[in-house]
Structures are given as structure tokens and as C-alpha cells.
Amino acid sequence: MREAARTCLREGGTGCLLILVGALTFAAAPPASLAESVIEGVVALPERPPPPVANPRYPVNTSGALGPPDPPTAVVFLEQNLSISPARVHPKARMTQHHYQFAPGLLPIEKGTVVAFPNLDDEYHSVFSYSRTKRFDLGRYHKDEDPAEILFEQAGVVKLFCEIHDHMRGQILVLDTPHFQKTAADGHYRLQDLPPGRHVLKAWIDEQTVWEHPVDLRDGATLRVDFP
């Protein structure tokens, strides 16, 4: 859609512009008469795993304070039945390395989002991912350097590792939908501004654990969905 818009703008045809405006009106802007819906609920989160056994190869030897990993959380998102996503400008997301942990431990983004990886610790980090969704290797970088930025163009899970601190684990969940929210530590979530209609609501715990629930959103209604 975005590509179509760009092509149209470059060519500058009025007819084309009219078609584009019509298309945008149909696809992205819901009719003003329909009120936004809300889904809220609780996701049963897994227990926090016990602290890992230290790897003797790289003992955790940090000059700064070692923070605890993020508590387990889930991402709840509405899977839409739209074949074309509306063109949106995504705000830049951040996956920091702070207290020798990825912060946040789990970052949900919409496809097309650029994520920056700022190092907030006093030591080098070397973040990489072998995930097929997005394979990259940032190499060693310090907090003084400009953080690397990566554009995530494919939906899926991206697992993050730091070669220097092998206890650090992070995940970026790249989603096809703008309607998502990470739960609070207690599992609560609230999704707002949802389009009415028949959808599937999913709760993503990890790669192996994804719950889903069909929802029929009515105009302005607030739905409560607990997982599982």
C-alpha cells in the first residue's frame, strides 16, 4: 500500500491521487460512526525460571551491578483479517542493554519498526541474532557509540544474545498487527482502539506457547478475555 502510494506520488497523476485518497479512506480510516472496542483480561504467566547455572567459560564478571532478568510476560495481539496493512509511520523502538540484561526482555513491535540497541552499561556488548526472522550481528560497541539501529521487516521472533555476556537473553516479537500489548508482570492487559469485527486474539508466551481466542468485537464494547 505504502509502495503504491509512493509510486503514485512520484508519478503525480491527479486521477491516481483520487484513487489513492479513496483507498486510504477505505483501508485505514474506519467510518466515524463506529466506536473503538476494548479487550482486557489476564494471561496466566509461567513461573519465573530459577537463576541459570553460571557458565564457567564466561563467568559473570561485570564492573556494574547485574540486574535481574525481566519477569516473564506475554504479548497479547489481535490478528487481523486484513490482507493489506495500513501505511503507518512506526515510532522507533529501543532494546537497551542495561545492568547486563536486555531491557525490555521481550519487545513486541509492529513489522517495519526500527529498533535501536543502545548500550547503557559501562562495558562492551556484542549483540547478535541467528533467528531466521532477522539475522544480524552488531559487533562490539560501547555506550559512547551511537547505537545501531535495525529495521525489522518480517514478522516472527528474533532471539537476542550477547556474545560477551552469555547469560543475556532477549526477544523481539515482530508482529503483523498494530493491535498488541505486552502484559504487566501480573498478566493484565488492555487493548484499546480495536476495530470491530471477527478476529482472533492471541497471547504469545514463547515460541512453543501461543494461545488464541476468537473474538467478535462489537461497536464500543469492552470484551474480557483471559488466557488460557
Binding site: N55, P56, R57, Y58, F128, S129, Y130, S131, R132, K159, F161, C162, E163, D166
Partner: peptide, 16 residues
């Protein structure tokens, strides 16, 4: 050393 390497663990996790 190899078995403890985080890159190997990452690759193994990815089954690549």
C-alpha cells in the same frame, strides 16, 4: 569451550 559458546547455543536453538 565449543559446547559452552553462546553462538553455538544460539545456532543450536535455531537448528541451523
Amino acid at each position: 569451550e565449543l559446547a559452552g559458546s553462546v553462538r553455538l547455543i544460539a545456532a543450536m536453538d535455531e537448528n541451523d
